Amino acid sequence: MEPSVFTRIVRGELPAAKVYEDEHTIAFMDAGQVNPGHVIVATKRQVETVMELDDELAAAVFRTAARVARAVDRAYQPEGITLLQANKPAGWQTVPHFHIHVLPRHEDDGVTLGWPRKNPTLEELSVLARRIEVKD
């Protein structure tokens, strides 16, 4: 797998404004700054999607995201915070390296996220649910 831009940041090959770093994760300011305080939380080890995270790495990255969100909330006092995590190109993933956006939000900040609701019946939802087998 080709090193992602985030892997290159982890290696120190590219500069970044770091916010936090531990054994498994790194957090740095998003170069695009949708709103001031927009942070990327990424795994240090390059895995592409949430489906590739083992339980330990998943816990570590979400723990870091929560810590960073609390810090962003204290520092910027936004009206809200959106955590966004995307997988595969059809799911809006643009960097092939697992990461979570911690995005401070304000009324009318221009950020949109929408999808058409289908509103299936409970019976239809139950059929869909039976197809999913969650494994430990």
Results as ranks from 00 to 15, higher is better:
Gly114Tyr: 12
Phe98Thr: 04
Leu84Ser: 10
Arg67Ser: 15
Thr7Ile: 04
Val68Leu: 01
Leu57Asn: 05
Gly37Leu: 00
Arg45Gly: 08
Ala59Glu: 14
Ser4Pro: 10
Arg117Ile: 11
His99Cys: 08
Arg11Lys: 13
Val72Glu: 00
His106Ser: 09
Ala129Arg: 12
Gly91Leu: 02
Thr112Trp: 04
Val134Leu: 07
Val39Thr: 07
Pro104Ala: 09
Arg8Pro: 11
Thr25Trp: 00
Arg63Ser: 15
Ala16Val: 12
Trp115Asn: 06
Val34Phe: 12
Arg45Ser: 09
Gly32Lys: 03
Ile132Thr: 14
Arg45Ile: 08
Leu113Thr: 14
Pro89Ile: 09
Arg11Cys: 11
Phe98Asn: 04
Gln33Phe: 04
Arg63Val: 15
Tyr76Lys: 04
Gly12Pro: 10
Glu2Asn: 11
Phe62Glu: 07
Val102Pro: 08
Ala58Lys: 03
Ile40Glu: 01
Glu2Ile: 07
Asp109Met: 03
Tyr76Asp: 12
Val50Tyr: 05
Val61Ala: 03
Ala90Gln: 11
Arg130Gly: 15
Asp108Phe: 08
Lys44Asn: 06
Thr82Trp: 03
Ala31Tyr: 06
Ser126Leu: 06
Asp108Leu: 04
Ala31Val: 14
Gln93Pro: 07
Val34Glu: 08
Pro116Asp: 11
Gly37Ala: 03
Ala69Val: 14
Phe28Thr: 05
Glu107Phe: 03
Asp109Val: 01
Ala59His: 07
Glu48Met: 02
Ala60Asp: 09
Ala129Asn: 13
Val5Tyr: 05
Glu23His: 05
Met29Gly: 05
Thr112Asp: 09
Val10Asn: 01
Thr94Ala: 04
Ala65Met: 04
Met29Thr: 15
Arg105Ala: 12
Arg74Ala: 15
Ala86Trp: 01
Ala71Phe: 06
Pro15His: 04
Asp73Gln: 08
Asn119Lys: 08
Ala58Ile: 05
Pro36Arg: 10
Val127Glu: 15
Gln93Ser: 07
Ile132Tyr: 13
Pro120Ser: 09
Val41Tyr: 02
Pro3Phe: 00
Leu122Cys: 10
Thr49Pro: 11
Val5His: 01
His99Asn: 04
Ala17Val: 13
Gly110Pro: 13
Val95Gln: 02
Lys18Met: 08
Asn35Pro: 12
His101Ser: 06
Thr49Cys: 02
Pro78Gln: 05
Ser4Ile: 09
Ser126Trp: 01
Asp22Arg: 00
